[in-house]
Deep mutational scan, measured.
Amino acid sequence: MSIQHFRVALIPFFAAFCLPVFAHPETLVKVKDAEDQLGARVGYIELDLNSGKILESFRPEERFPMMSTFKVLLCGAVLSRVDAGQEQLGRRIHYSQNDLVEYSPVTEKHLTDGMTVRELCSAAITMSDNTAANLLLTTIGGPKELTAFLHNMGDHVTRLDRWEPELNEAIPNDERDTTMPAAMATTLRKLLTGELLTLASRQQLIDWMEADKVAGPLLRSALPAGWFIADKSGAGERGSRGIIAALGPDGKPSRIVVIYTTGSQATMDERNRQIAEIGASLIKHW
């Protein structure tokens, strides 16, 4: 067993022997301040990774656009098919120029040779490549099948209805392509620590998230040296922004954090800054 596999296998073990965790309302004060600064709703939840206990939450059962955070769930569904012998990570998928959609920095470079399922998941999570996500959605049967996968996990809230990039439209009061912070946090925890996926697939999923290259201005910008984070960000229309993450000190994750916002007129930089400040408060009061 590799060191990384050992780390993920012992996530519940280490967490069980940690000192009790206590909620700190100071972080919620910052979440509410972010709402004021952005002029928009902000949803927040913080779960203990081992027990699933909610440590703090704000608007945990209000719907927010998922945006690209759905790509972690998508690759979880792909990995479940791999575990069941219905898919192979090494299978190569070929596609054409007509398949390319807006923001496809990886797939646009491989029109000639195609990409493997493993490479597509890596591109979808680490670079948020939209064509990679659409190609992977095709392998599982489309958005409705991802929703069905989530329902089978016990998540009857999260739903995907459309493809990239239309799913980022974020129309107010439109339930399409949305989740709730509580539902997303619980589902992410199941994917990373539950028995739904094999140990190898859980490790692969967290490795992809740990290698995320496009979430630097968010929670990662607030992390002290030595902290662990595996995350996936999302951005959408109407001032929408979000991030889902597993993080913790001492090089291992111990909490799940989900943050979503929508309806702001603020710039992307300002949305990023507010999420980073929430992260800084979380870490300060850990």
Rank of each mutant, 00 (worst) to 15 (best):
L111I: 14
A200E: 11
M127P: 02
A123I: 04
M209L: 08
F64C: 01
M184P: 00
E102R: 06
P181N: 01
T107I: 05
P172A: 14
M209I: 03
N134C: 04
T139G: 13
Y103P: 08
I278T: 03
A183Y: 15
P60Y: 10
D161V: 09
N272W: 02
T27R: 04
T178W: 02
L197T: 05
H151Y: 09
V78H: 04
Y260H: 00
R92V: 10
A266C: 14
K144H: 14
S128V: 02
S281W: 07
H110S: 12
H94E: 08
D99G: 09
T116M: 12
A200N: 15
F64E: 01
P217E: 10
P172C: 10
G114F: 07
E56D: 09
K144A: 08
A77P: 02
R59Q: 14
T126Y: 04
G142W: 02
R255P: 01
E108F: 15
I244Q: 00
E169A: 13
N168D: 12
W286C: 02
D83S: 07
S254R: 11
M268A: 09
P249F: 05
A124T: 14
A222L: 11
R176P: 03
A77W: 06
L191H: 04
Y103R: 04
G142R: 04
T158D: 01
A215V: 04
S264R: 08
A34E: 03
D48C: 06
M209R: 00
D269G: 14
F64N: 01
G194I: 05
E270G: 14
A84N: 13
F228V: 06
M180C: 07
A132I: 01
T27A: 13
L74S: 03
A235C: 04
A222T: 12
L192P: 00
G154S: 08
S281A: 09
D177C: 03
L135M: 12
T126N: 11
F70E: 02
P65F: 04
L100V: 12
R220Y: 02
V78D: 00
S122E: 13
R162E: 05
N98F: 07
H94Y: 08
L136K: 01
T187F: 07
G52T: 06
M268F: 06
K53P: 03
L137H: 04
T187K: 03
Y44A: 02
E195F: 04
I229L: 14
I256K: 00
A222M: 06
L120I: 10
N50Y: 09
L38K: 09
I229K: 00
G263C: 13
G226V: 04
H24W: 08
P217H: 09
A276G: 11
K32S: 11
V42H: 02
T261Y: 12
L28A: 13
L89F: 12
T178P: 02
V72M: 04
I243W: 05
E270F: 05
D269Y: 13
E277P: 02
M66L: 08
H94I: 06
F64L: 03
